[in-house]
């Protein structure tokens, strides 16, 4: 387990040890036009990647509210990946630039309150980059596995 950069608050307690069969849950929030299409291409190309990611589709990475990232880490996810179109390729002209700026601030904020900075990650994946998507997911999964579980609330809410 890596050390936390900011020690003011430490949710990432080093004493939390992952059980042997533990698998992280990662939420992937992908823009419809580039990254979601790219992830579809990974599928049609039958490229394999770790099964930990759960994908949520949004129109544009600029739709991703800071709230979503906090809520994810707070409730179900051990890590979040946000992915959008490459700079300059945004389907909505400039949305991904706003997303990038907001994301950097969010990352700092989460880091400040004690989350390791690798818990949330950002990538650019185009609709043509099936192999890149598989690589990004593998890398993020590796990173989160190293960080260990976040051990907060879990599911239940929606089950009988």
């Amino acid at each position: 387990m890596e050390t936390v950069t900011n020690q003011l608050v430490s949710i990432e307690k080093p004493e939390i040890v992952a059980p042997p069969d533990w698998q992280p849950v990662i939420i992937g929030i992908l823009c419809n036009w580039c990254s979601y299409a790219g992830s579809d291409l990974t599928g049609t190309s039958r490229l394999q990647y770790p099964p930990n990611i759960r994908i949520i589709r949004v129109p544009c990475s600029s739709r991703v509210d800071t709230w979503f990232l906090i809520k994810s880490l707070q409730t179900t996810a051990d890590g979040v990946l946000v992915s959008g179109c490459h700079p300059g390729d945004c389907h909505y002209i400039s949305g991904n630039y706003f997303a990038r700026r907001r994301f950097l601030v969010t990352k700092k904020l989460l880091n400040f309150v004690g989350f390791h900075e690798n818990r949330i990650q950002f990538s650019w994946v185009s609709a043509a980059e099936g192999p890149k998507f598989a690589k990004v997911v593998s890398k993020v999964t590796e990173d989160i596995k190293k960080l260990g579980p976040l051990h907060l609330y879990k599911k239940e809410n929606f089950e009988k």
Binding site: I56, P59, R63, D65, F98
Partner: peptide, 24 residues
């Protein structure tokens, strides 16, 4: 695109089909 939804500090805007309740 939803840019405005995420920027709004008052949560005054919602994007049909991708509302906050839906994504949360």
């Amino acid at each position: 695109c939803g840019s405005c939804v995420a920027i709004c500090r008052s949560t005054a805007i919602n994007l049909a089909g991708f509302t906050d309740p839906q994504i949360i």
